[in-house]
Design a protein around this nucleic acid. Sequence first.
RNA 1: GCGCCUGUAGCUCAGCGGAUAGAGCACCUGCCUUCUAAGCAGGGAGUCGCAGGUUCGAUCCCUGCCAGGCGCACCA
Length: 560
Amino acid sequence: MREGNSVRGLTERIQEDIRGRIRQAVEKSFGLKVEPELTVPGRREFGDYSTNVAFSLAGALHVPPRKIAESIAAALEKRGSWIDAVEVAGAGFLNFKLRNGWCLEGLKEIIELGDDFGKTDFGQGRKVQVEFVSANPTGPMVVVQARAGAVGDTLANLLEWSGFDVEREFYVNDAGHQVEVLARSLEVRIRQCLGEKVDMPEDCYPGEYLIDLARRYLDERGKTVLDLPEEKRLAELRAYAVEAIRSSQEISLRHYGVEFDVWFSERTLHESGEVRAAIELLKQRGYVYEGEGALWFRSTAFGDDKDRVLIKSDGSYTYLAPDIAYHLNKYRRGFEKVIDIWGPDHHGYISRMKAAVQALGYPEDALEVLIVQMVRLVRGGETVRMSKRAGEFVTMDELLEEVGRDVARFFFLMRSCESHLDFDLDLGKLKSDENPVYYVQYAHARISSLLREAQERGIKWPCPVEPDLNLLSDESEVELAKKLVSFPEEIVNAGLAREPHRMTRYLIDTATLFHSFYTRCRILGEDPELTVARLYLSEATRVVLRNGLRLIGVSAPERM
RNA sequence: GCGCCUGUAGCUCAGCGGAUAGAGCACCUGCCUUCUAAGCAGGGAGUCGCAGGUUCGAUCCCUGCCAGGCGCACCA
C-alpha cells in the first residue's frame, strides 16, 4: 500500500502510472505536455481504462484524432507496467487492457489491511469541518434531520477515510427569540400541570413533548421557579429546556449511529463578545454601513442580491450576525474547509453566508454548503402530512422505530441529497427481498456463513500459504476482484464530490458481483487449491462489504 | 415577480462532456438432492420535459420556455 510517503489504492496507482506513460508518449510524439484524463469505459470490450487525449490534441495539431491516437499507441512504453495492450478504437479513443491478474494482486492488500482497507492519505491531514443536523433545541428532530444526519455522517466518514482531519459539529441555536418562546411555552405547560387555567398563546410551541418536559421539570426541581421574577424565571426554564431537548437529540442521534465531536453553543458567541467582534471586523474591512436605523452588511460586494441587516433598528441582532461570528470562529480554529449541511429552507442563506466568509478575508471556497432536500413520507401510496405548526409531525425517533436504523440510513443514502425524496414506509418496513437494504447485508451474511462452513469442514483457513490467485479466471471472479480493488478510489471520489450516495451504489454493485460469482462458481469444491483461492476472494469481499457498510453506518450481519 | 431543487422505463431513483442510457420494485420465462433461493440467468419496457446553442461528441455545460416542489423578511 505504501509508495514513498503516500498511501493510495491500487487502482489510483495504476491510473497514475498509465497517465504518466501517456504524458511521455505524447511528449515523445508531439513535443507537447498534456494532463490526460482516464475513464473506465462502460463496455468491457473497450478494456480497463480509456483516454480521450487524442480528441483534445486534434484541434491544436490539425490532425485527425485517430492518427494521433495511433502515434501515441506506438510510442507508449508498456514495459514495467500492468498494461497488456493499447488499442485505438472508434474515432480516436485509446483503450488500455491490463494484464490478467492485476486486480488479483490487489486482493492481498485487502486481506492484509482488513478493517483499514479503503483508507488512504489523499487528504494529507488537512483540517475539514462538517457541520450538520444543527436542529433547533426547541423540539424533537424531524425526518429531514435524519436524512441530513445520514448524509453528514457518511460524508465525514468518507473524508476521514480519505485522509482528512475531520471534525463533526452540531450548532446549537440556544440564543435568540425562539428559545425565549420555548421558555415561555414550558412555563405555560408547567402552570397547566399545576392546574392553572392558562391557554397556550398562539405564537408558542404547542407540541405535546413540552407537557412531558413540564412534568419532568416539576419532579426534578419543584415549582419554586414560578416565584422568581420574570427574567430569572425564563432564564431558568430556558436553560433547562434547551439542555433537556439538546441531550435528547444527542441520544436520538447516537441511537442512529451519529456522534458529534463538538456541540457548539450559539450563546457562547454572545457571551464571549465574538458577535460584536465579528461585526467590528467587518466594519474595519469596510463592509458595514448604517441606514434606516439599522446596521447593514454590504453582501452585494460579493454577489448577493441585496445587502443584509446585522443589527435591527431595535438594537437586536439578526440571525446572520451570530452566524458570521460562528463561521469566523470556525476558521480561527484552523479549518481549511468548512462544509455546512443545511435544510432546504435555508438555501437563500448560501449567498449571504459565502459573502460573509469572503468579507472576513477567507477564500470563497473555504465554505461549501450542501442543501439536503425535503423528505416526503409515503404510506399506502399517500403522503403522510407533517406539520410542525399543528404540532403533528413524524419525528426521527418514530421513523427509526418504524423502519430501523439500517433501513433509514440506507434509504437516505440511495438518493443524491439534493433531490427531493419520497420515503416509502411500506417498502422500508418490508423485511424481504423487495427491500434493497437486505440485498447488500445478505451478501455479507452469505459470506460469513460460507467461511463458517469452511471452518467446520476443516479447511485450513486463513490459508497458511499464499493461494494461487491465478486460478481465479472466471469472468465473474475477475469482475468482482476489480470492483473490490477500486474501493479506496471510490471513497476518495465520493468524498471529493460530496456525494455520499455513491457508496450505496458501490455496495449494491459489489453485492451483485458477489452473488453472481457465488452462483457460477462452486467455492467449497473438490480442488483444494481452487477452494482456497475462492475463499480468499470471498474473504476480500466480506472485508469490503463490512467496511463499506460501516462507512454508511449500516450493520453487517453475520447471519440473516 | 425573484431565487433554489427536481423533470430519465409503469413506480422510486442512479448515471465524472464520450462509444449500444442503467439499477431496484412491478410484469413474464427458467434455475434449489450439493457452500444461505433475502439468490442467480434471461425477457419485454425509454422522444433522457420542450426548443435552441457551445462541442469532433450533450442525459450532463449555456440560454429560453413548460411542469412539480420549496424559499423570498429589520423571522428564527
